[in-house]
Computed example of a mutant assay.
Amino acid sequence: MGMDVYGEAATSEVGEYFRNNVWWWRPLADYILRTHPELASSCAEWHSNSGDGLNAAESIALADALDADLASGAVDAYSTAYAAEVAALPREACNLCNSTGLRTDEIGVAHGYDKPRDPATGRGGCNGCAGVGTREHWAASYPFATENVREFAAFLRASGGFKIL
């Protein structure tokens, strides 16, 4: 699933369409909502494909704010802090193998995930946790990158307003 963001009156090709899968969109939208809530407030549904969005003037104002954040290093600082916060999260119990490291359900048995991991081949063990019984915290699935902010700012500037579909 993804967030397809369409420009309403694009002034160039970059403003016609912006897409992030849900894993990339959530941290981008959260950054905007945390750092520029007043500029984002006209769009109440940043995390929905409901067709909400910003008009042309609001999009330009948000693009200006994001470009200023990029120029000042604020986005890079946020990215570094975000990565550190995610890295510090505790690992979680693996739900595919019930933290045993071996997956004994039908799929696990069919694919050999029910046998201990062979260090020489890397085969075996639970495919969800590599046979260790724990997985990265779910939040590690949501990356944040400065380049994504830069691309969204460029889209905003040329979109003529947008809708999230």
Score class of each variant (00 low, 15 high):
residue 54 L to I: 05
residue 49 N to P: 02
residue 29 A to L: 09
residue 42 S to K: 11
residue 54 L to Q: 02
residue 44 A to M: 01
residue 34 R to I: 00
residue 39 L to N: 02
residue 57 A to E: 14
residue 58 E to R: 00
residue 59 S to D: 06
residue 55 N to S: 09
residue 27 P to I: 06
residue 55 N to D: 15
residue 51 G to R: 11
residue 26 R to P: 03
residue 37 P to V: 12
residue 38 E to A: 09
residue 35 T to H: 15
residue 29 A to V: 09
residue 32 I to F: 11
residue 43 C to E: 00
residue 47 H to K: 12
residue 53 G to H: 01
residue 43 C to H: 11
residue 52 D to F: 11
residue 52 D to W: 13
residue 57 A to Y: 03
residue 39 L to I: 04
residue 54 L to G: 04
residue 51 G to M: 12
residue 36 H to Y: 06
residue 39 L to K: 08
residue 37 P to K: 14
residue 42 S to H: 11
residue 61 A to S: 06
residue 34 R to S: 13
residue 57 A to F: 00
residue 41 S to K: 13
residue 43 C to A: 07
residue 54 L to D: 08
residue 51 G to H: 08
residue 29 A to N: 02
residue 47 H to C: 03
residue 31 Y to L: 07
residue 41 S to A: 10
residue 27 P to T: 12
residue 35 T to M: 15
residue 30 D to K: 09
residue 27 P to C: 13
residue 33 L to M: 15
residue 41 S to E: 11
residue 57 A to Q: 14
residue 35 T to V: 10
residue 38 E to F: 06
residue 36 H to W: 03
residue 48 S to L: 13
residue 55 N to A: 12
residue 35 T to C: 13
residue 63 A to I: 08
residue 52 D to T: 03
residue 30 D to H: 10
residue 29 A to E: 01
residue 53 G to W: 08
residue 48 S to N: 13
residue 49 N to F: 04
residue 29 A to T: 04
residue 27 P to V: 11
residue 37 P to M: 13
